[in-house]
Amino acid sequence: MASKPAKEELILPNVGRFQAASLPAQEETTRSWKRLKIGVPLGQFFFNGFTVTSAFIILSLVLAISAVLAVEAVPALVRFKAGFLVGTDWDPVNEQFGALPFIYGTAVSSFLALIIAAPFGIGVALCLSEMTPFWLSDILGFLVELLAAIPSVVYGLWGIFVLGPFLRDAVEPVLVRYLGFLPLFQGPRVGVSMLSAGAILAVMVVPYISAVCRDVFSAVPAGLREAAFALGATRWEVVRLAVLPYSISGIVGAIILGLGRALGETIAVAMVIGNRPVISASLFMPSTTLASAIANEFTEATSDIYVSALIELGLVLILMSLLINVTARLMIYKLITERFSR
């Protein structure tokens, strides 16, 4: 043996501040971490305390929001009972409050948005996961996600000055000409309408649907795709036979999640929908939604019962949105967690 090192050097990973090689002797190490009397290391006690408290705060926030809204809505709940949900009068001066026009407006504008957005969302996701090369999917995916990043007030601004007039002058005349016999497409054209709300919502919801669909498509086992290709399937046949059947519940979940977003969207809708609590079959008429009514009227509500009625609108909204979110999450979790959780 030539030159043996005086001390054998262990090569251990350099982990953060802990240089393994320079750890003190064993007894000192165990002593250096303080322990509580019950045997739990002091640091572990604080670490668990901090993280569990944080997690508890999140858990309780969901419950607290629902509870606070329910309590605040009590005066209206007591006074109007179930009539609130089916009443069509919204007359703050005479303290008559019925939520049906708002529920109707919310439902119709959201469904309209989904009818437009769902095919696009799924199409984008298919294109990015099945067609384009990886680097291009990255760029296109980023651009589509930018649609979700633009603040809703900016969409609203654009909706007022660009989209609304465009729909009124260019799209609605075409709809009247070819589909004017439907009650959907009748009445005066004023620029603020259910149609503009649906259109702007569609733009805002597409990135959510496509992002979730992409996650779902990437969770399809590679073997399924490869098996289909090996049988000589074309690209579309692979999608139809392997990708879509496997991910159908995830796609539905994504669309429902988009519905949840559309229901709760406030400012952009408040700016383009016209805010008139009337129920009309025509998409050209101004309407209103639960969220936009709260945004518009909350600070102007003078009487306590008025505020309470508005909060009850909020309660209806959050119940709808909780129901939708829980359903959608459950549908998506089943597919995605297997692949992404370790």
Binding site: I58, I65, G264, T266, S321
Partner: peptide, 9 residues
Amino acid sequence: VLMGVPSIV
């Protein structure tokens, strides 16, 4: 679910 709660609420 909290991420899905409408902002106005």
